[in-house]
Write a protein that binds this DNA or RNA. Structure first.
Lengths: 225, 225
DNA sequence: ACCTGAACACCGTTCAAGT
DNA sequence: ACCTGAACACCGTTCAAGT
């Protein structure tokens, strides 16, 4: 853990030699990743490491507490290192939101793989959405906050996946006569809006989590004939 | 504007004597409020001044850019002065959100004063809500973000006003047979959730503002029989 | 009671320099 | 190409001190 200390006064710096004889430096020795066996986080996958750490931070402390310098420290790189992968803090937040839409899409996909007819699928998707958005409250917030910003195109593309999946389900439901008629894009948008809104109510403590089942049932009855 | 300059090196400090012969000091002379006629902001209504400045900042630059030090500078008090009125930055944000619920309530009240029957009132309230939440996007975000926090009781109480108003409208609509049946609390919650969700979609640029009319119409058709 | 000024411990961002 | 270290210009928060 402590193999040597530099002589310079005021500079808390330690070095360490791994089994490959590479010198690893850092201000925070305790945080240095082992370089020998499973390759260090940095040099190759800093981006992935940053996203993983950021996601944990987001869930555990919220977006406001997410500091690039903290993440860099946790991973064991300099505070300027993240810049190569995320030029700005907002870029990291955008990447998290983008990943959030991808995860949401796969959650919805899983819900659609369940047994039962279309009505059952609608119910399953609705439940899955609200579950995802309440279990990942800070992430859901991030996913739906002001994308009126240059460079947010990727994010909007990522959002298109779950929305497209929802649209397909709506089309299927309408053709089978289990869902209300009308423009499927509009109905799909209203459906997601309702679900996101319900999640917001729970996340903001305006509605209680225990009410969610009943609220979902009320919403379900409005969409399914 | 510049009446004198202190001699101290490295200290950029100017003083100014107003018509009441009070010496006003500050690092940013251009921002100093006139002390003579209309009484300065500070000394009496700093809280109000802070909220007003914060509201403008929220609208113009978003919550992330809202800095207590900035507001203090703009108003012309020391950076530590806000502390008396808002012990923490979060306290200021909470106060903004609280005010937001009060403003929303009065907006809904106004919508309910329009002509027409209950169905028309429902439509008016729905439109008014979404209009408010899209014209005050950053504020709406603030109003629905994690109140799972000690000291957020006042905020939840403030939220009760517009929700109560919505509930009354739902009860009226149900008794007149223009709204779907079921638990009025649940239906009211789903209604607000739908509206807030639609506003989120527009604010996040996932839906376009031009679609709002159609989306509202689709939502309206789901609640009104 | 309300505000000031200095201080502390952070930030995000930039940039020359290293390998 | 990717990372470091120092530097810059900010923050929020705290606290003794002033009036």
């Amino acid at each position: 853990m402590r193999e040597g200390t530099s002589e310079a006064v005021n500079v808390v710096m330690s070095y360490k030699v791994d089994s490959d004889y590479n010198v690893v430096k850092g201000n925070n020795v305790g945080m240095i990743r082992r370089v020998s066996d499973d390759r260090p986080y940095h040099h190759g996958n800093l981006r992935t490491a940053l996203l993983a750490a950021a996601e944990r931070g987001l869930r555990e402390r919220g977006a406001d507490e997410l500091a690039l310098r903290d993440l860099a420290r946790e991973i064991g790189v300099s505070h300027a290192a993240p810049r190569r992968h995320f030029p700005t803090r907002q870029a990291l937040l955008d990447a998290l939101a983008e990943d959030g839409f991808a995860r949401l899409d796969s959650v919805l996909l899983t819900a659609l793989e369940g047994t039962g007819g279309t009505a059952a699928h609608v119910r399953a998707v609705m439940t899955a959405y609200v579950r995802f958005a309440t279990e990942n409250a800070a992430l859901a917030d991030l996913m739906y906050t002001s994308k009126h910003r240059p460079g947010a195109e990727r994010l909007l593309e990522a959002a298109a996946a779950p929305f497209g999946r929802m649209r397909e389900l709506v089309l299927r439901g309408q053709s089978e006569g289990v869902l209300r008629g009308g423009d499927p894009d509009r109905l799909g948008m209203v459906l997601i809006a309702t679900l996101q809104g319900l999640a917001s109510m729970v996340n903001s403590a305006i509605a209680e989590p225990e009410q969610l089942g009943d609220l979902l049932e009320t919403a379900f009855a409005q969409f399914v004939l």
